[in-house]
Design a binder for these strands. Structure first.
Length: 557
DNA sequence: ACGGCTTTCACG
DNA sequence: TCGTGAAAG
């Protein structure tokens, strides 16, 4: 449910850029012969000619709609060009459109604070640009303003409505909303057209309270709305009815997670572990590729792997029971991801079946990598820890500027012992002669980083997200702390008693050390590593263990 | 046999 | 924190 945010003091100028039938335009760029033609992009075409996901305006003229099937589109528009989404690993591959979206974002980002809202949508905060324009070229007459204004569709308004009106004049047009016209605009805006009210909340507003337009909300007090929908949503509703939004444009050009999934409708449903494994392997391969390029291109690292599935039980056509999603620390390397995803599936299936010995079928699978953080650039990313292959030629000192792509290396981030003997396992090596612990980078406070680096010289802290050294990072956090202490009184006490957070220095989080390896470590290092896995103070009842395997409860025999 | 595939956000 | 559900395109 939507929530109100503190609104910025200054009025803002915000643009919402929405690409017209974007996938079609991407295909038209690739094949110019498609330009100006009725065209649609479909994914798959085995079944009823595939599903349309984008339709050109020429095709719309024939009545072609998104959510039609290819066959149907041909029926209403025999001349339509149907372009198929590329398929890789047995599933639709949207990378072509993703990167085309990035091209656009890269251009818009030079114009102002820029937020990538979806594959084909961008929010732009043009406040500074507008100020600058007025400063550089102040209009010397009201007429001049009118002339400029005549080039746009004028409506005008603050931020949140940007999205609403950007679709009013399509394609290839813009709509401007001056704040003076907001109230009139909202007065007649049907409830369900408002962003965030297109679903159940909007329906409830209509059906339970009888509101037809946003303007109708004005008749309710804030308290009344809070009574109906809770404090947060109530306040939000009260404010949007008055055209007040605290939503800000985030400065974010990259997405916050990567997911890939596939559905297995009807007869395609997966009914045994082998087929699930096969598809999961495919999905994980794509995911791995995507996070790997995110790491290489953007120096970002993902920390969580999540598996989602939809399932039903044999003979139980309409059980309400859902397949639970499951997550675990993400370990880099295709093989690791596949392995972990399968374990997550087994764990989910176990919960789903809850001791019933029935057949099952899976109608959709997806894997997601989330909790993505920047790795500070210009610093050697992280050090390595633990075992080196006894045989191989891998460097004792990591070449941290490059990230290993070789899946057998498991992880992009390693620590290495300053004293190799110390950590050399007595246990036997694997056949490939390589055995690594899996480690991924994690943010922690500068203070914590300092403490650990002092205690363990072989562990190196690499600096904060601004590329500053630990010392200057600490310096900065001390300054911040000093500044903040004046205001700390009116802060809610969420971190009461805790060590001040400091400013985003970096440490290493040992997510999945091979237990055999841990055994070999000196006790104090071992203890410390245990501590990194979860922050030391977390008197949480169910705390996960130190190894990846603790994320996968034993399957029922 | 369902639109398919993503992505983000809030709640408990 | 994890897992669920809503909402969007």
């Amino acid at each position: 449910m939507p929530v109100a945010r503190p609104e910025p003091q200054e009025p803002r100028v915000i643009a919402h850029v929405d690409m017209d039938c974007f996938y079609v335009q991407v295909e038209q760029r690739r094949n110019p012969a498609l330009r100006g033609q009725p065209t649609a992009v479909v994914q798959y075409n085995d079944w009823k000619g595939g599903g349309l996901i984008a339709v050109s305006y020429e095709a719309r003229g024939f009545g072609v709609k998104r959510s039609m099937r290819g066959d149907e589109a041909k029926r209403v528009c025999p001349g339509i060009n149907l372009v198929q989404v590329p398929v890789a690993r047995g599933k639709a591959d949207l990378n072509l459109y993703r990167s085309a979206g990035s091209e656009v974002v890269a251009i818009l980002a030079s114009k102002g604070k820029c937020e990538r809202a979806s594959i084909d949508e961008v929010y732009l905060d043009l406040t500074d640009a507008a100020k600058e324009m007025l400063l550089q070229a102040p209009p010397d007459s009201p007429e001049e303003i009118s002339i400029e204004a005549a080039k746009s569709n004028i409506l005008g308004l603050p931020s949140m409505l940007a999205k609403l009106v950007s679709g009013m004049h399509k394609p290839a047009q813009q709509t401007v909303v001056p704040s003076s016209s907001v109230q009139d605009f909202l007065a007649s805006l049907p409830v369900k057209k408002m962003k965030q009210l297109g679903g159940k909340l909007g329906s409830s507003l209509q059906d339970d309270l009888g509101f037809e337009t946003i303007g109708d909300l004005l008749s309710f007090t804030e308290e009344k709305l809070q009574e109906e929908y809770g404090v947060n949503t109530g306040t939000w509703l009260w404010k949007i009815a008055r055209g007040i939004s605290g939503e800000e444009v985030e400065d974010r050009l990259l997405s916050m997670s990567h997911g890939c999934g596939k559905t297995f409708p009807g007869p395609k449903a997966l009914k045994n572990s082998a087929s699930v494994k096969g598809w999961l392997d495919q999905l994980c391969e794509e995911l791995s590729e995507r996070i790997q390029s995110d790491l290489n291109q953007n120096k970002r690292i993902a920390q969580t792997l999540t598996l989602h599935a939809r399932a039903s039980k044999e003979n139980e056509r309409d059980s309400m029971k859902k397949f639970p999603s499951k997550s675990c620390p993400l370990r880099y390397g295709t093989g690791k991801i596949q392995e972990d995803a399968m374990k997550l599936f087994e764990s989910g299936l176990h919960d789903f079946l809850e001791y019933q010995n029935t057949g099952w079928s899976i109608t959709s699978l997806s894997v997601t990598a989330s909790k993505i953080f920047d790795i500070p650039s210009g610093t050697s990313s992280i050090l390595r820890y633990v075992k080196r292959p006894s045989s191989a030629s891998s460097p004792a000192i990591p070449d941290s500027s490059s990230v290993p792509e070789d899946p057998s290396l498991d992880n992009n981030v390693y620590v290495t012992p300053s004293n190799e003997e110390q950590c050399e396992p007595s246990t036997s090596e694997k056949e490939d002669g390589k055995k690594y612990s899996a480690i991924s980078a994690k943010q922690c406070s500068a203070n914590e980083a300092k403490r650990i680096s002092k205690k363990f010289p072989e562990v190196k802290v690499v600096g904060d997200k601004y590329g500053r050294s630990l010392e200057s990072s600490l310096e900065a956090s001390r300054a911040e702390e000093h500044n903040a202490s004046a205001q700390i009184a009116d802060r809610s006490s969420t971190n009461c008693g805790a060590e001040p957070l400091g400013s985003n220095a970096w440490m290493f989080n040992v997510e999945d050390i091979d237990p055999a390896v841990v055994e070999e470590l000196p006790p104090e290092i071992r203890r410390e590593i245990q501590g990194w896995i979860r922050p030391p103070k977390q008197p949480n009842t169910k705390r996960r263990g130190s190894t990846i395997s603790s994320y996968f409860p034993p399957a029922r025999s």
